[in-house]
Design a binder for these strands. Structure first.
Lengths: 206, 206
DNA sequence: GGCTTTCGCTACGAGTCGTAGCGTAATGGC
DNA sequence: GCCATTACGCTACGACTCGTAGCGAAAGCC
């Protein structure tokens, strides 16, 4: 991150420890207070830094929470579990575990809501959170196509559309189950979801 | 709504016109300002009522926006279009049209985010928004089962689980497509979605 | 007409926002 | 080792919003 700005390499450098402390304090505040009652002054106090330091690095609450929540998604990975169904179940369970955390619940949806009126914020969310998830989905699909479980699209545009569709269906279902319906996306639910995603509703029941 | 409270029928009645004006003003403020910059004082001014009147009827911003957004979903209906696929496409397009409105985008997600830390608010959202959508899904499924397009579940618990799963998949995909991915759920997308929902990813491409 | 509740209005303390100004601390260049 | 430059902690500030209290007037039911 520092090497992104080769200019201005003189002067006292910014404390990396302060960055980590601020983001951790933001997550703690999200857990205890939730999005609406989280104040930047409180976060600064928790992190042991001055409020002005916080404002020097982030434009506001939105950007700060995006960065704080984005770190939660670092643990997402997609090991080869041998079949498309197993891969889907694995990544969905990981995603559900992250969304089960209170700091993700209250923080993520709030910034998404704000992003509907802020293009820069939308781009930030896309770059630091959504794109990473999307890449996992595309990798899982490519893997399944190599196994012969999924057909290869001839048209590149069609392939892109299908990739986006799968992504929205997977992530959307988990988010909706967790945040709107208010239920946990446990193993039983994930099995049922994967079955419908791969075979469709019209497939005969197990 | 008035008949719900048979007690306290004496004194000056509350103005129903004020209710409508306040909810309309709330939606207008959501469009112009978005969730975070919406203030109750501003809504009261727009509606032509005193701020105190607003506080007498709603506990706060969360409850007010839920009621204001809930009215948008009054137009949802599910006419029999002859097949399960057509029914799904129809209701998804209606849902997408509502979510495309700016007042729905910024308001709905924000209150859902708040509801992760407020059980009463969660119940309010469920009762006035989510349950109505859920009923449409269950009706569409029952209709498809009558047509013979979907199998009948023997176990009632299994039937309930499947109903919830379908609901989360349908609503979640549209919400995610619209708000997170930031794309429009147009007819082409809805066709692709319906195909995957009914036939599964592994079905051969058209 | 009298009782009851709502209404519009004003005012208030409390809390948060984002910024400015200051002196100090930590670097790299010379 | 000194200096320019940048980051830091701290304090203070005006502006804004919040949610509530108190008041007199209005609008219904008996």
């Amino acid at each position: 991150m520092q090497s992104r700005t080769p200019a201005a390499r003189t002067g006292r450098p910014r404390s990396a420890a302060a960055d980590a402390a601020i983001l951790a304090a933001t997550r703690a505040a999200l857990v205890e207070l939730g999005w609406s009652k989280l104040t930047l002054g409180d976060v600064a106090t928790r992190a042991g830094v001055a409020k002005t330091t916080l404002y020097r690095r982030w434009a506001g609450k939105n950007e700060l929470v995006v960065d704080a929540v984005a770190e939660l998604f670092d643990e997402l990975e997609l090991p080869d579990r041998g079949s498309l169904a197993a891969d889907v179940e694995g990544v969905v369970l990981q995603f559900a575990a992250i969304l089960a955390r209170p700091e993700a619940k209250s923080g993520l949806m709030a910034v998404v809501a704000e992003s509907t009126r802020d293009a820069a914020l939308r781009a930030r969310i896309r770059g630091s959170i959504v794109e990473r998830q999307m890449r996992l989905v595309l990798e899982g699909r490519a893997r399944a196509q190599r196994r012969g479980e999924l057909a290869l699209e001839g048209d590149p545009a069609e392939a892109a559309r299908t990739g986006e569709l799968i992504f929205d269906m997977v992530a959307g279902a988990v988010v909706h189950r967790t945040l709107v319906s208010g239920n946990q996306a446990d193993e039983e639910w994930v099995r049922g979801f994967t079955r419908v995603l791969l075979l469709g509703l019209t497939a005969p029941s197990a």
